[in-house]
Design a protein around this nucleic acid. Structure first.
Lengths: 212, 212
DNA sequence: CCGCATCCGGGGCGATACTG
DNA sequence: CAGTATCGCCCCGGATGCGG
């Protein structure tokens, strides 16, 4: 991107990551870890393939990510964040916490959704009401790849769920699932909105709205 | 800007503030408070006038800032952040702290500078080594409008200096002034780089590199 | 002087097609 | 699967004009 030519920390940061799609690419690598080109494409609906390729080239040049030629069993390149790239997590967090307010009304027409994007709403809205309880996992199934929300020692984390068996499984459209998680909907209301809850539903009582 | 059409908190945030120049406009309003159009222009060297006008219109429409028609004595409009706009401060902080690493080598050819942009480097690099000491002020004079760094109760804040008399005054080129503040240069080295220190220079001993 | 609006050239972006 | 190639368009940058 064209430089702002300002000797200012914010402007210098934007010189590097201010291009369109750039921060969303870093979002994918932050949430999903080292990823293949095709996985990045799936997590970035709407991006043009040439733009993704060009951004990856530029981000490699500026030391934000690294391209690793994976060993023969995989036989494809993996893109992963460098230390400098991973240090952008606080930027994503601040943006995500600010942007969550735009999600409460539900998706706009044409919006795409991937379950792992729930990381920020969950982090924003939820706490574990029973920090001393046993670790439990909640599978969230909203159409694409399922993700697991883990409650452990009072912390809630969201990560791609790789075939693990969860204690409770929630499936349905993104907006009512989010509503159920945040407490905007109770289980009965969520069912009316097409959400199904399987397994130990009482675990959901451990989800507590985060303090404002 | 064109929407990413992703039901994701980060993408929704970027839909609103992802346009070029937008976050820098919010930077100016955050650092300087309610500002006139011309003051914004001075703090945003390189921006085209039509772009500034268009961004201000759009940011007003999305509820990030408000235009106040100032009473007759001023006879000009003031732009100020709304609550939602002010809530972007953590985003600027995260970006600024990440971007500071690009400033240590000094400005690139053609870089413009405004003293109030020092807020992030100071916040990043400095602590008050004598939290119980009396409040003191340091005037930083780097060519444009001077700013005041206040040390009070262990906190360091940077704000535009409005005619106040400071305990010590540092003037010179931005990079060596920054070097002196951060401890990369001692006073003798800074003088060699054209920096002048007037007043109670011993106050600078209270500046302590921030813990990594 | 302040606060824009208008015009125009160039480049970044978006969509699709194509290839090893 | 992992990109490259191409093309139209719109956003951006820079200059100028202009009413209050």
């Amino acid at each position: 991107m064209r430089s702002y030519n300002q000797y200012c920390a914010v402007a210098k940061a934007l010189d590097v990551i201010g291009d369109r799609w750039t921060l969303l690419i870093i979002r994918e690598l932050t949430l999903r870890g080292p990823s293949r080109y095709t996985d990045l494409r799936r997590g970035l609906p709407g991006i043009a393939t040439n733009l993704l390729a060009e951004r990856l080239r530029e981000l490699e040049r500026t030391g934000i990510l690294a391209r690793e030629e994976a060993p023969p069993p995989v036989a494809t390149a993996l893109f992963s964040l460098t230390e400098r790239g991973a240090a952008l997590a606080p930027v994503l967090d601040a943006l995500g916490l600010w942007g969550v307010s735009y999600m409460t009304e539900g998706p706009e027409p044409g919006d795409e959704f991937r379950a792992h994007w729930l990381a920020w709403p969950v982090d924003m809205f939820l706490r574990d009401a029973d920090p001393d309880g046993a670790p439990v996992t909640i599978e969230l199934d909203t159409g694409d790849d399922p993700v697991l929300a883990r409650l452990d020692a009072g912390e809630i984390t969201v990560q791609p769920g790789r075939g693990e068996i969860a204690d409770v499984r929630i499936s349905g459209e993104p907006h009512p699932v989010l509503g159920l998680l945040t407490g905007a909907l109770d289980i009965a209301q969520a069912r009316d909105a097409g959400v199904t809850v399987e397994g130990r539903a009482e675990i959901l009582d451990r989800l507590q709205p985060a303090p404002a």
